[in-house]
Design a protein around this nucleic acid. Structure first.
Length: 464
RNA sequence: UCCUGAGUAGCUCAAUCGGUAGAGCGGGUGGCUGUUAACCACUAGGUUGGGGGUUCAAGUCCCUCCUCAGGAGCCA
């Protein structure tokens, strides 16, 4: 195709000003006047569009172009010139306008604000809106920032499997992966489905976490991280749960819980700094239209240390808060959303680590503390989103780990390779999981996870 | 899965005590010497989510189903 200049580059002007360029993109608005007419053309390279100026004299197909509606795709060649109007520094004086893809009046996106709820029903078109263009540019930049953070610190990116043979990752309901007939599967003599005849010779599922695999690599390569899709078959209907989402799980050998929290803070501060520095236009948009004050809040966050509160202390604070919680607080309970919100939004007012939870409410692999009743766990709570990071120091002592597996009624044989890592040169190590979408929500101010995923999957919804 | 709320024009919404379904935007037509969510005039556009019921009369009240949203639980 003909060489095109991205709108972002055209708007920057520079050496291009005065020259002839071609831009290709989609019409946001077409204002036809008697003497001179205007089209705002957006190609997704940035938030702003390029103003195309055209007249009856300049275009052979003026009638056609003046009737073009919002949504049409155009290729415009013209002179990039300093704007004669207000509101933009440069504009494109069109020599030729080619109608690449026409768009009729039934195009669902209009020159006005739509509800996010409505836009979810047209997920195939919503990337063409300002908000979703900005969300998905930021999503991309954030993903890059994450890789850069770890890469600069010598972490190895490990591609843990998406199909897993272990039913023991313990983080929620799983989606089954099978090639057996759903209506007539092979059966054992006892009438049960004979999974031995399934594709992998056993039951398999989509992963709910790469952590256990990640630990094996941390105990070989030192510092590693995973970054990929994760699947949970929970029937969750909330603004912060999706059935398919992406997760980042660093795992570090020779790290304890304090090292873990320090890394988590450095990590969040780094990736937020990176987005603020590289997406100023999109972030200003979120600040103006989505969540006023978000930029200032993020700026402050990148320089202020996060708070750390032990669970036992958090319980005491909640009990002394004078708040009438729906769920009463006592030592041993899992903190409810209302408690977490009070801690991070009211009490601290910024991100806070809650550490050292009772072992009964946490996973088997978390390292048992010397007090005999808590484990070296940490949850990072942030205002507006809630839990954004969950992590722990892992139990590296074979006997303690085995005891805990048995105490919790789990099957030792399901964890044979995990346990072996504690027999063959075990080492202290720690890690955490960050919900990628929750990070995007926190940074953009978008309040529903369905609006930061290109085509979200949630219970009863897999359209597109 | 539980609780609450909402479905009215393509979109965003209004419609008082149950009494003739409206507006803005978008579309069409015409106008306008540089517009910026352009502006001005005219115009088309409706099985009020589906089904049933009460009533002289239902967008409005009752029953039921569907869909969506928010909250809770689970978690990231």
């Amino acid at each position: 195709m003909q060489q095109r200049i991205p709108v972002k580059q055209a708007l920057a002007g520079g050496e291009l000003t005065g020259g002839t360029i071609t831009v290709m993109g989609w019409v946001r608005t077409n204002r036809a006047g008697k003497a001179v007419s205007f089209i705002e053309l957006n190609d997704g390279s940035c938030l702003k569009g390029l103003q195309v100026v055209y007249t009856a004299e300049s275009l052979s197909n003026y009638d056609e172009v003046s009737r073009v509606l919002t949504g049409a795709c155009l290729s415009v060649t013209g002179q990039l010139a300093p704007s004669e109007g207000k509101g933009q520094s440069v504009e494109l004086k069109a020599y030729t306008v080619q109608l690449v893809g026409d768009c009729d009046a039934t195009f669902p996106l209009q020159k006005k604000r739509h509800s996010f709820e409505y836009l979810r029903t047209i997920a195939h078109l919503r990337p063409r809106t300002n908000t979703f263009g900005a969300v998905f540019r930021v999503r991309s930049v954030l993903a890059y920032a994450i890789h850069r953070f770890f890469n600069e610190r010598g972490f190895v990116w490990v591609h843990t499997p998406i199909i897993t043979g272990s039913d023991c990752e313990g983080a929620g309901e799983m989606f089954r992966v099978s090639t057996l007939s759903p209506t007539d599967p092979p059966r054992t003599e006892g009438g049960e489905v004979d999974w031995a005849q399934d594709f992998f010779g056993r039951q398999t599922n989509l992963t709910v976490s790469g952590q256990l695999s990640g630990e094996m690599f941390a105990l070989a390569l030192g510092n590693i991280y995973t970054f990929g899709p994760t699947f949970r078959a929970e029937n969750s209907n909330t603004t912060r749960h999706a059935s398919e989402f992406w997760m980042i799980e660093p795992e570090m050998a020779f790290h304890d819980l304090a090292d873990n929290a320090r890394l988590a803070q450095d990590f969040l501060q780094f990736i937020i700094r990176h987005v603020l520095d590289h997406c100023p236009e999109d972030m200003a948009f979120f600040d103006q239209w989505v969540k006023p004050g978000i930029v200032a809040r993020l700026e402050a966050l990148t320089t202020t240390p996060f708070e750390t509160i032990p669970y036992t202390e958090a319980v005491r604070l909640l009990q002394q808060s004078g708040q009438a919680f729906q769920y009463p607080v006592s030592w041993g309970i899992d903190l409810q959303t209302e408690h977490e919100r009070w801690l991070t939004e009211t009490h601290v007012g910024r991100p806070v680590f809650v550490i050292d939870y009772p072992k009964e409410i946490k996973a088997f692999y978390m390292r048992q503390n010397d007090d005999g009743r808590t484990v070296a766990a940490m949850d990072l709570l942030v205002p507006g989103v809630g839990e954004i990071i969950g992590g722990s120091q892992r139990e590296e002592r074979h006997d303690r780990l085995l005891a805990r597996i048995n105490e919790m009624g789990l099957h030792e044989q399901d964890y044979w390779w995990y346990l072996e890592s504690r027999r063959f040169g075990s080492a202290p190590h720690a890690g955490f999981g960050l919900g990628f979408e929750r990070a995007i929500m926190y940074i953009t101010g978008m309040e529903n996870i369905r609006d930061v995923v290109p085509f979200p999957r949630t219970p009863d919804n897999c359209e597109f």
